[in-house]
Amino acid sequence: MQILIILLQIVILLAIVLLHVAYTTYFERKVIGHMQVRLGPMTVGWHGLLQPIADGIKSFFKEDIIPEQADKPLFLLAPVICLVTMLASLAVLPFAKGWVLADINIGLLFIFAMSSLASYGIILAGWASNSKYTFLGGMRSMAQVISYEIPMGMSLIGVMMLSGSLNLTEIVNSQGGSLFSIYLFPQIIGFFVFFVAMLAETNRVPFDLPEAETELVSGYITEYSGMRYAMFFMAEYIGMMVMASIGTVCFLGGWNGPFPIPFFPPFWFILKVYGFLFLFIWIRATLPRYRYDQLMELGWKLLIPLALLNIFLTGLFKAFF
């Protein structure tokens, strides 16, 4: 019985998250459209509201092409690795008090572990497709993900030090309910490093070098089509949501808001995640792409020292106050 309830919860969570993925793409196209003085999708449904459904159906029925020279098992496996690791990290996110599938002690580390495994999907996709564009995209992504995982992890160490826990629920609880007790203010350097590393980890503009359209066609997903392409797509958007949730949990006080909402406790959490997603899209509409050496320089020479400084300052703060 217990197992059935958990399975039902997983199914509901997946359905909601996948629906969110579909409508994040719609939201993205609409927002970017309006920012560039266009209308965005308009024809399918009222103001294009059914566009993501149509896209989903289309990609579902498209032919699944496997290149002749590709390494077949790895080519088929790569999108699955990407999607499964991203979905697995959803399990530890606390959406509201008690609204979490697996309330484990090492929640934050689990998410790091999953996101580092997700990079295998990208690397293998790049290698297994046996094409120059995908390979270059995969190599870029590999270097990028390795470089930015370090500042990402380090920027959250300050949060771990303040809350004294790796459990995401406890991190939220230790921030208290008021606006001024959230970790955004004491950890402002950490938040800055986290935010930049978050953009790089999810391969978003201005760090979308692995899939730079103008240079690499679509980077590591060039050879994919139909449902497998959609799986990479979903993995990327779920990755964005997971990172936004981590930002919400670790810096913005999670599900706590100005006043509790009856019947729907995760309201504030979801609102904050939407805020992050809007920032992602806003940045995409605004900023140009970084050059590769600039990306590496920013990661290693600015973000990592800043994150170390943040750990040092937090340690001093903890020792003297």
Partner: peptide, 21 residues
């Protein structure tokens, strides 16, 4: 559990990726 997570992050996530590189 801590060692388990670190095992995956460090060995699987970092060192093996460098090997692949």
């Amino acid at each position: 559990e801590f060692i388990a997570a670190v095992q995956v992050i460090v060995y699987a996530g970092a060192i093996l990726v460098l090997y692949l590189f």
